[in-house]
Each structure stands twice: as structure tokens, then as C-alpha cells.
């Protein structure tokens, strides 16, 4: 990695979190070739890898591809040089959220926040609660969410959450990981 006496670079941070040296990336583009979101994004996985390898955190912050990653692992399975782009993107999302929590697209932040809230409150995911919390947090109103009645009639949505017995264990995990309640 960088010189041991130098300041910690973005390459170093990713290495510390994942054990991956992103300077390995030789920009073959195979990750972007197989990425299912490549046609919907402008900054694709190999672009993100390039910017990160150049310690360009500002560039990474602009990358839409960072947030619309489906974590499908296709890039990592096919990467010829063992750069594991899926793990690198995980790490970069974490780094960006640490430094610039406002960067993540609103619906995504809303979704993940609502999801984790459900888990913290009940120990399990309460789907109805998730959808409602998501919408209150500003998630888009989708036409198909209105088919929730269809879900109900099929017995697929519970109206009340199930709470686990040892909720304090889950709470402790959240606290230890520095996840505060909103």
C-alpha cells in the first residue's frame, strides 16, 4: 500500500476494510460489461474502481453506480484480477456514508434507514411497517405498492409486527456498531 509514514489514502482505507488492493484493477471493464445496472448508470463499476484507485473520493461521491449496485456479485465472480468490485463498492459506500452521509440518494437512504429501524424495533422485519416508514421518509409512491391489498388477501402481510423475545441482544448489536436511533 502507500508509504507507511504517509497519510492514509482512499486506497488504504479500502484495503483496511476489505483486504483488497484496488490498484490491482487494470481497467478491463469486465465488471461493467456484466453489470445489470450498467445501462442505467453513468459511472459504472470500472469507473468507480478507477477513481478509487486514484484516491479520488470526490469522483466516487458523484458515482450513481455506487448507489444502484444490486450486490448481485456478477462483477466479483468474473473479475479476472481478483479485485472483488462488489466488496470494494460495499466499502466505498460505507466510507462515503461515514464522511458524507447526505450523499446517498434519498429513496435509498429512506429504504435502508426504515429497514434497519424495523429490525431494531422488533428484531425482525415487519414488512407493512417498512413500507409505511419508507413512504413517510419520502420514498416514492409506487403504483404497485397499492396492490398491498392483494398481499393482504393472500395472507402475505401481517398487520402487526412479531417481536423477538431477546430484543435487547439485537439492540446491543446496533449500539455496538454505532447505529443510533433517529
Amino acid at each position: 500500500m502507500s508509504h507507511p509514514h504517509g497519510p492514509e489514502t482512499l486506497v488504504d482505507r479500502v484495503h483496511r476494510q476489505t483486504g483488497i488492493n484496488i490498484r490491482r484493477c487494470y481497467q478491463c471493464g469486465k465488471c461493467s460489461a456484466g453489470c445489470p445496472m450498467a445501462q442505467e448508470t453513468t459511472i459504472r463499476p470500472h469507473d468507480v474502481m478507477r477513481m478509487a484507485a486514484q484516491d479520488d473520493l470526490e469522483g466516487v461521491r458523484q458515482a450513481d453506480g455506487l448507489w444502484y449496485c444490486l450486490t448481485c456479485e456478477t462483477c466479483s465472480v468474473r473479475c479476472p484480477n481478483q479485485c472483488d468490485p462488489a466488496r470494494v463498492l460495499d466499502a466505498l459506500r460505507e466510507i462515503v456514508q461515514e464522511d458524507h452521509p447526505e450523499d446517498a440518494p434519498r429513496p435509498l437512504r429512506a429504504f435502508h434507514r426504515s429497514f434497519l429501524d424495523q429490525v431494531r424495533s422488533h428484531g425482525r422485519l415487519f414488512e407493512m411497517g417498512l413500507i409505511m416508514a419508507f413512504k413517510t421518509r419520502g420514498g416514492p409512491l409506487f403504483a404497485d405498492v397499492t396492490t398491498a391489498p392483494g398481499m393482504l388477501s393472500r395472507g402475505k402481510l401481517h398487520l402487526a409486527p412479531t417481536r423477538i423475545r431477546h430484543l435487547e441482544e439485537v439492540r446491543r448489536i446496533f449500539e455496538a456498531c454505532g447505529q443510533r436511533e433517529d
Binding site: 476494510q17 450486490t71 460495499d90 466499502a91 459506500r93 460505507e94 456514508q97 429504504f111 435502508h112 429497514f115 434497519l116 424495523q118 429490525v119 428484531g123 425482525r124 422485519l125 423477538i164 423475545r165 431477546h166 441482544e169 439485537v170 448489536i173 446496533f174 455496538a176 456498531c177 454505532g178 447505529q179
Partner: peptide
């Protein structure tokens, strides 16, 4: 017994440890 949510796709957005 008393299993809890695995965190699915959201938990690792909240950090590797979580």
C-alpha cells in the same frame, strides 16, 4: 429459537460489523 433478521441488503450499508 428466537431468530432475528439477518439484516439482508441493508445491514452492511450500516457498516461491515453490523
Amino acid at each position: 429459537d428466537d431468530w432475528s433478521c439477518c439484516g439482508a441488503s441493508s445491514a452492511h450499508q450500516g457498516g461491515r460489523l453490523l
